[in-house]
Amino acid sequence: MLEKKLQNDVVNTGKDDIVYVNKDGSRLSPEIAKLIRDSGYQLSDVALMLIEAVAAELGNPDSFTARHKINEISKSFPYHHRTLANRDSLGTGPKEHINIGKYKFYRNLSILEMLCKDLCK
Rank of each mutant, 00 (worst) to 15 (best):
M1R: 05
L2G: 04
L2P: 04
L2R: 08
K4C: 13
K5S: 12
L6M: 13
Q7C: 13
N8L: 14
D9H: 09
V10G: 11
V11K: 07
N12V: 10
N12D: 12
N12F: 14
T13D: 15
K15Q: 12
D16S: 09
D16H: 05
D17I: 05
I18N: 01
I18M: 09
I18W: 04
V19Q: 06
Y20R: 05
Y20A: 10
V21L: 15
N22Y: 14
K23A: 11
K23R: 06
K23G: 14
D24V: 10
G25P: 01
S26W: 09
R27P: 02
R27E: 14
R27D: 08
L28C: 13
L28I: 06
L28G: 06
S29G: 13
S29D: 12
S29C: 09
S29Q: 08
P30F: 11
P30T: 10
E31D: 11
I32H: 01
K34W: 07
R37H: 06
R37L: 04
R37D: 15
D38W: 02
D38V: 03
D38Q: 15
S39H: 10
Y41A: 15
S44A: 12
D45T: 05
V46M: 10
A47G: 15
L48I: 13
L50M: 12
L50R: 14
L50S: 07
I51D: 07
E52K: 10
E52H: 07
A53S: 14
A55S: 14
A55N: 14
A56E: 05
L58T: 03
L58V: 13
L58E: 00
G59L: 07
P61V: 02
P61Y: 12
D62V: 01
F64M: 11
T65M: 10
A66D: 03
R67G: 02
R67Q: 08
R67F: 00
H68Y: 10
I70W: 01
N71D: 07
S74K: 00
F77D: 11
P78L: 01
Y79I: 09
Y79K: 03
Y79G: 06
H80K: 10
H81A: 04
T83P: 04
A85C: 09
N86F: 00
R87C: 02
R87L: 09
D88H: 03
D88A: 06
G91Q: 09
G91S: 10
T92V: 14
G93W: 00
G93L: 06
G93K: 02
G93T: 12
P94G: 11
K95T: 00
H97E: 03
H97F: 09
I98Y: 05
N99T: 06
G101R: 03
G101M: 12
K102L: 12
K102F: 09
Y103A: 11
K104Y: 01
K104Q: 08
F105E: 04
Y106I: 07
R107F: 05
N108S: 09
S110P: 01
S110K: 05
I111R: 07
I111E: 07
E113Q: 15
E113T: 05
M114R: 05
L115D: 10
C116H: 02
C116Y: 02
C116A: 14
D118P: 02
D118S: 03
D118M: 04
D118C: 01
L119M: 15
L119A: 03
C120N: 15
K121T: 08
K121I: 12
